[in-house]
Amino acid sequence: MVSDLVLTDIRDGYRVLTLNRPDRLNSFSAELHAALLAALIAAEQDKSCRALILTGAGRGFCAGQDLSDGVFTPGETPDLSVPIEKFYNPLVRKLRSIPMPVVCAVNGVAAGAGANVAFACDIVLAARSAKFIQAFAKLGLVPDSGGTWFLPRLVGPARARALALLAEPLSAERAESWGMIWKMVEDAELMTEAHALAANLATQPTDGLALIKQALDVSETNTLDAQLELERDFQGRAGRTPNFAEGVTAFLDKRAPRFAGRA
């Protein structure tokens, strides 16, 4: 069943979404895309959900596109722009725009679109055994799912070009040292760390965190003047929320704040 392809674990203030095709290293099929997008929309519609964890079942996070899922038939010329437009682009846009922090817990391999979907999340944790692979060049393809956008911004143009052109695996340890991910952790500690992050984020001012996500994304293309004006406008919005009043009151009262969720 489609619903079995993404497992949803509802916790106090956050959800865990687990890609569940372990026999295929959680590679993307049309059905998996539909299930993941539906799970993200359901989380967005649940106002009690204030953070997400995205991870994979079994020994890998996601091996990218399942090439046996009808994208290539011997003797025929496929139009790969169709699945990109139908599945991958909406998924990346949803991960970037969803109004809550998304923590990606990368267990094992994250290859091709699997790597770039991880980079579309807000905070990336990786197990020591994890590897990131821009596998596209080995198939004569171009990095998609935002790969050509994320890579230069995460690691700089020189490393981005080498990763894309050579398609060599990058260890979690190297990914952390290059600033590609937030943190590498020991395999046994990955989900404990991810749950701790999500639980903490679920207690924070969710609307303010959503504005931070928006501001950081547009800063990549804004001029300084445009970004300063956006910061002015966003700060005006944030300052009118009950969470700002609660944060200041808690600071003055010398107590922990009790922030509300999404409006």
Results as ranks from 00 to 15, higher is better:
146 G>V: 04
130 A>N: 09
96 R>N: 12
163 L>G: 09
121 C>Y: 09
155 V>I: 12
102 V>D: 03
49 C>I: 02
13 G>H: 04
202 A>F: 10
90 P>W: 04
68 S>M: 09
244 F>H: 12
157 P>N: 01
10 I>S: 07
232 R>Q: 11
77 T>G: 08
185 V>K: 08
225 D>R: 14
18 T>S: 11
62 C>F: 00
224 L>E: 15
73 T>N: 04
237 R>S: 10
138 K>A: 15
227 Q>V: 01
243 N>K: 03
250 A>H: 01
171 S>N: 04
26 N>L: 02
164 A>T: 09
1 M>G: 10
142 V>K: 14
194 A>P: 01
129 S>G: 08
263 A>N: 08
144 D>K: 08
130 A>S: 15
57 A>L: 04
8 T>K: 02
218 V>T: 13
243 N>R: 01
231 E>Q: 06
111 A>Y: 06
253 D>R: 07
35 A>H: 08
24 R>P: 01
126 A>M: 06
207 D>F: 13
84 I>E: 14
159 R>I: 05
206 T>H: 07
100 M>H: 15
250 A>F: 00
66 D>A: 12
206 T>F: 03
221 T>Q: 14
105 A>V: 04
56 G>L: 01
50 R>N: 14
239 G>F: 12
174 R>A: 15
161 R>L: 14
39 A>Q: 00
99 P>R: 15
89 N>W: 07
226 A>Y: 08
117 V>G: 07
1 M>W: 07
131 K>D: 12
244 F>V: 10
26 N>S: 05
27 S>D: 05
17 L>E: 04
218 V>Q: 14
38 A>Q: 01
174 R>N: 13
135 A>H: 10
145 S>F: 05
259 F>V: 02
109 V>R: 11
191 M>F: 00
254 K>R: 05
254 K>F: 02
260 A>W: 00
64 G>D: 03
211 L>G: 14
133 I>V: 15
234 F>V: 12
119 F>M: 04
133 I>K: 10
37 L>Y: 08
36 L>F: 09
257 P>Q: 00
249 T>H: 05
65 Q>H: 11
200 N>P: 03
244 F>R: 13
96 R>W: 02
154 L>C: 07
171 S>M: 07
26 N>F: 01
138 K>C: 14
245 A>K: 08
30 A>G: 13
170 L>E: 09
69 D>I: 00
165 L>H: 09
70 G>F: 02
163 L>K: 07
184 M>I: 01
241 T>K: 12
95 L>K: 02
69 D>V: 00
190 L>E: 04
24 R>Y: 03
179 G>A: 08
104 C>I: 06
254 K>A: 03
190 L>H: 07
119 F>S: 05
69 D>Q: 08
109 V>K: 11
107 N>A: 02
252 L>H: 04
187 D>R: 06
133 I>E: 05
231 E>M: 09
69 D>H: 03
151 L>Q: 05
3 S>M: 08
195 H>A: 15
205 P>W: 00
235 Q>T: 11
194 A>I: 03
102 V>R: 06
256 A>M: 02
84 I>R: 09
169 P>N: 05
15 R>K: 11
161 R>F: 15
121 C>L: 06
144 D>Y: 13
250 A>E: 04
224 L>Q: 14
102 V>G: 01
168 E>S: 15
30 A>E: 11
186 E>L: 12
